[in-house]
Amino acid sequence: MEGILNGLMDYVWAFVIGGGFCLIGQILMDATTLTAPRILVIFVVSGVILQAVGLYEPLVKLAGNGATVPLPGFGYNLAKGAMEGAEKGFLEAIMGPLKATSAGIAVAIAFGYVISLIFTPKSPKGN
């Protein structure tokens, strides 16, 4: 019984933390004149910095994908790769960030390229 409850709480945390990041993003979009690329950069870089000072790891432990799926999670993975690489040596420290995120980046580039070549842009729906 307790196990099920604990399992359920994991889902709740994933929902709350993931939604919370999106809420922060929404407030940034509505209340400031920041453009989308700037907001994406802010999120990723803050993930890198938070992980570097050791604040992001506990959040991932708590919320799982709720913390890794939002863009700060991308920054977290980059920084985590760098930090783990740094323990092994200079080269590993430099290769670490891309190693840790290579799956996502490679797919985003390759699949994105294919999609862009296949589909044509639609003009916005006129009504």
């Binding site: 979009m29 989308a36 842009p121 639609k122 003009s123 916005p124």
Partner: peptide, 17 residues
């Protein structure tokens, strides 16, 4: 709309509000 938007702002298919 489509020519001006992609030159001055963000792409049409880009998710933004």
């Amino acid at each position: 709309f489509c020519t001006a938007e992609r030159q001055f702002r963000l792409p049409v298919e880009h998710g933004n509000q």
